[in-house]
Design a protein around this nucleic acid. Structure first.
Length: 573
DNA sequence: GCCGTTTTCGGCCCGACTGTTTTCAGTCG
């Protein structure tokens, strides 16, 4: 993804925020937010574009195109600079506090001069909010509490933590008498890489016992709000859970609504409105007569809007509506499409399970092929040697006799050095069925160095897969900085696959980069990188990430039959 | 600020909950 697109999108988003603080027109603000999304998701680099080119970006009109041109020429947008001079950055930060939005953040600034979260804490402690219009005792207490939460829970939760919590809530609530259906929705159903809060939807004609049972769950630490239709709680696992109860007849419309994303829903509602219909969580209605048209299944809601059912991971308003209208949605890759795993470890290096146990688990998963890819000698702490590697190869040949339906491939995970070189010479590498190569150190090289480094690895005729390409650790380590378009072009040209790694704190490539790579003709490997038998269950998170990147089985080399995979692995000149 | 098979002007997605300015604005999703 072009860096210019991201920077320009962030400037437009800041412009929208600053205007909402200064009380700008709400529709104008929405126009900037929409344009920010469009610029971010636009396939071409905007930095070379002039006005006519910029106007081609959806939702970008005359005025925003000029602002983008301003950005292209000066690296910023003048109006943003002007507003920054008026509104300190800290005031925008105030709106991060739950229950405090742009209006009251501005009020605090205008009337009390509060321009940061720290100053707000001070003002509350000194009682300076007393008598301020709109800030009663409960509001002040909510804000104080919100600041505490903001400080301690900066981060969103990893998808595996949220996933487990959601499963627990769904299991418990499903037991309540009168509950006809129960399912988690929201960003978790869309398989976002991190989750802000868990949304659970229930179909029942009798909400009261559902709410009571929900509030009584053992991990609930605080009731944020509770009514007939909706209850929100905080849990001991740090996540907020929102429970929504709807009549069973509204199930499909509600599921569609609560799955989001918000941007996707705005689009579906616009389509409804243009057809004289109204879409809400209760159903699709005729505006004039008020008559209910459909509501029982998601499928019929979409169909009545003239669209095929859209898989949740695509629902981000990044082109899925347009694709649906043209009946050109991708047939997304699924867990059951994967025939093999190309990146796994054993206790020969840093895995915790034996070769035999890992292979048995692979057979249990029903895989057709399975690559064992222990670390190579350059990661010195793994203590790998040529002899150990060759001995493992022999054991695999023996073990193969016990698995007539599972091809066991012998591979390795090479270390990509700072200059792009890998552990072994060509002769030794030629002995492997598959080579994954990954960055494990020197994360702070500059953009040009990292780019060259990864391209050099792709150009190695024995490297088949780049493992966890950005080397990020979600919430802990930033991705390495590279010109990804250049890297992806090299990968496509050399027949090197990019990995989508399953570890919940990696999910690497991330979906946005994978989608970018897809457009440049790259193939992918969706791997567990399993270091234990239990790790194999993580595969669903990488598949979710791949779905968010619009990948189909044809884009994923380990969804291919073995002969086709072998052809790909034979690689390059 | 954007946009057009209702429109180049007048719309722009919809509803729940909270707290407070007692009839509704702000916030959230």
């Amino acid at each position: 993804m072009a860096r210019a697109n991201e920077e320009a999108a962030e400037l437009l988003r800041e412009l929208a925020d600053l205007l909402s603080i200064t009380g700008g027109d709400a529709f104008k603000i929405r126009a900037y937010e929409k344009a920010a999304r469009a610029v971010e998701g636009y396939p071409d680099d905007i930095s070379g574009l002039e006005l006519p080119g910029l106007r081609k970006i959806p939702t970008v009109g005359e005025a925003i195109a000029k602002k983008l041109l301003d950005y292209n020429r000066t690296g910023t947008i003048r109006q943003v600079e002007d507003l920054r001079a008026q509104i300190p950055a800290g005031v925008r930060a105030l709106t991060e506090i739950p229950t405090l939005g742009p209006k009251r953040a501005h009020q605090l600034y205008a009337e009390l001069g509060v321009s940061s979260v720290a100053e707000l804490t001070e003002a509350i402690d000194e009682g300076r909010l007393k008598g301020l219009k709109g800030f009663g005792p409960k509001s002040v207490e909510n804000i104080r509490h919100g600041i505490e939460l903001l400080v301690q829970a900066q981060d969103r939760s990893p998808i595996d933590v949220a996933s487990e919590l959601a499963d627990d809530v769904v299991a418990a609530v499903s037991q309540v008498p009168g509950v006809e259906r129960c399912q988690y929705t929201g960003s978790l159903r869309r398989m976002r890489e991190t989750i802000g809060d868990v949304d659970v939807l229930v179909a029942s004609d009798d909400p009261q016992p559902v709410m009571e049972a929900f509030k009584a769950l053992p991990f609930v630490t605080e009731i944020i709000g509770s009514g007939d239709k909706k209850t929100s709680v905080r849990t001991s696992r740090g996540l907020q859970v929102d429970l929504r109860v709807v009549p069973p007849a509204s199930w499909g419309a509600a599921l569609q609504y609560f799955t989001g994303s918000q941007a996707h829903n705005i689009r579906t509602r616009e389509i409804a409105a243009r057809a004289g219909l109204k879409l809400s969580e209760y159903g699709l209605f005729d505006v004039e007569s008020g008559a209910l048209i459909v509501s029982e299944t998601e499928d019929e809601v979409y169909r009545r809007l003239g669209l095929p059912w859209i898989p949740p991971p695509l629902r981000e308003d990044t082109g899925e509506i347009e694709a649906a209208q043209k009946d050109a949605l991708p047939r997304l890759v699924r867990v059951e499409d994967l025939r093999g795993d190309l990146h796994t470890h054993t206790d020969l290096t840093d895995g915790v399970a034996s070769l035999e146990a890992m292979v048995a688990a692979a057979a249990e998963r029903g895989l057709e092929y399975y690559a064992v890819t222990d670390h190579a000698p350059d990661l010195v702490m793994q203590r790998m040697t040529d002899e150990k590697m060759l001995a493992q190869r022999e054991r695999i040949r023996e073990l193969q006799k016990d698995y007539p339906n599972l091809a066991i491939l012998h591979g390795t995970e090479l270390n990509i050095g700072p200059d792009g070189s890998v552990d072994w010479d060509a002769d030794f590498l030629a002995g492997f069925d598959v080579c994954v190569a990954s960055v494990h150190s020197h994360f702070t090289q500059d953009r040009d160095e990292v780019t060259r480094r990864l391209i050099t690895a792709c150009e190695n005729p024995h490297v088949n897969v780049i493992g966890h390409p950005t080397a990020r650790s979600i919430g802990r380590r930033a991705p390495v900085d590279a010109d990804w378009d250049e890297v992806f072009r090299a990968a496509a040209r050399t027949g090197t696959a990019m990995e989508v790694n399953s570890f919940p704190d990696r999910l690497d490539l991330p979906a946005d980069l994978a989608r970018r790579a897809l457009r440049l003709g790259v193939k992918f490997a969706i791997d567990t990188d399993a270091h234990s038998v239990g790790n194999m269950r993580n595969i669903r998170f990488a598949v979710g990430t791949a779905q968010r990147a619009w990948l189909t089985p044809d884009d994923v080399i380990n969804a291919w039959p073995l002969p086709r995979l072998r052809e790909f692995l034979a690689k390059k000149p």
